[in-house]
Simulated assay, not measured.
Amino acid sequence: MLNVFEVAQTVVSHIQKHYAEDVALIAYYGSYAQGTATSRSDLDFFFIPATERGYQASIQFVIDDISFDFWPISWERAERMAKFEEQNTTIIADCNLLYVRSEEDRERFLKLREWIAELPQQQGLTFIEKAEAQLRDVYVHLYKMSRLAEGDFAACRTEAHGVLNKTVYSLALLNRTYMTRGWGKNREQLRQFAVRPVRLEQLAETILSAGSIKEIREACERLTEDMVTLLTEQRPAHKGAPSFPDRAKGFYEEIKGIFDKIITACEKNDYMLASYWAIGVQDEAAAFLYYFECGLWPDRLEIGAAYQSFYHEAGLPDLIPLLNPRDLVPLHDAVVRLDQLLERHLQERGVRMNRFEGVAQFEGFLEARVRA
């Protein structure tokens, strides 16, 4: 039986001889690191290059029918993994080091592991947002499944695989952790998650085993719906108290430019431009008001626009019913009113506006700010 660590030591010796200053460290992960390797298991190992020349050390090979992939991970990518910005956090968290160029490299690597341990304790809302981003990607697969030709079973399986993969990653993030093992070996970890869809295993089995496109697509849709519900339920725990002065600084000064754009379009009778920006600016203003009130951004996976409640409670005009290509005057007047009302609404909540009467006053403000 092939001793994979003898092969690994051969690679390490080669690096020490020919790339001593070009490779920061070498490590292995996966089944051998977790103690679950079989006689057919390959050795998953990687290295972090210290120079551009170091990337040349990458090699893929097979010895005695066992495959080896000695692949590079840049420090930047390793940092993304440690920050849960890529799926393979386990590669950094659970690997064993085979070679380290210097103590400085070792300390830098151990710092990544500190991030992995500390971030879930410090950034609960961030993990919900990361989970949400992964789940948004699921909709791409669902859309593609909806457009498949009748009988294109292989493509359906492929898209369903994408749904399942991103859903599991999203679920791990929702539980502020990462998957330690690949599919098939991760069931116990999934069962231990405090937050998980009740039908997860049932739907996963249908997605992988069903014999019709319709069954697979419906299971993918139900799993996605269950995940959206979980995310929506988790968000309220992270809501904060209203805080306008710090969160809204500079907001009005920026959005006013869009108001002026719409007003000008209305005056020029340019309905396409006016309607496009009117729809967008109301949504943007509503989203920001939600953030100012709650300290978190609206749930973009939630159907409808419930987050616009703060916009309407502030008495701000609803622009969308006023969209009329034959008469832009009502829209024009509503945007003028929105400009005035929004500024007043923010000022009443302690937001200071940077408004100046001419360049001289602005110059004075800049000088005073430097001296402050």
Rank of each mutant, 00 (worst) to 15 (best):
G295P: 02
E225A: 15
G304D: 05
P321G: 02
V281N: 03
P298S: 04
P236I: 02
L230R: 01
A248N: 01
E313R: 13
R235M: 09
L319Y: 06
W297N: 07
I213F: 10
A274D: 01
Y307V: 03
Q234K: 10
A278M: 06
F251N: 00
R191T: 11
D226A: 09
E253P: 05
H312Y: 15
A265R: 00
S309K: 15
K214D: 15
N186P: 02
L322Q: 00
H238G: 03
I303S: 14
Q189W: 11
C266S: 07
E215Y: 09
W277P: 00
L322D: 00
G304C: 08
L223R: 00
S209C: 15
D260R: 14
I213H: 09
A248Y: 02
P325G: 06
V195F: 11
Y276P: 00
C266K: 00
A204P: 04
A306K: 13
F259M: 10
G295A: 06
Y307S: 02
L319F: 01
N324S: 10
T229K: 14
R235I: 10
F193I: 08
I216H: 00
L316M: 05
H238N: 03
P298N: 04
A241R: 11
F292R: 02
L301T: 05
E313P: 03
Y311N: 01
V198G: 09
Y290S: 10
C294F: 11
L273W: 09
R247I: 03
I258S: 12
Y311Q: 07
I279K: 12
S243C: 11
L301Q: 05
W297V: 09
Q282H: 05
I255N: 07
G280L: 11
D318K: 09
A210D: 07
E293W: 06
A219L: 06
P197H: 06
I213L: 14
P321I: 02
T206D: 13
Q234I: 02
Y291D: 02
L301G: 08
E215I: 09
D283E: 14
F193P: 01
D260W: 12
G295S: 07
E221H: 10
R196H: 09
G240W: 01
G240T: 06
Q192E: 15
E233P: 00
F288A: 12
L323K: 05
F193G: 01
R247W: 03
V198S: 13
R217N: 14
C294I: 08
S275V: 02
S243Q: 13
K214S: 15
P245D: 07
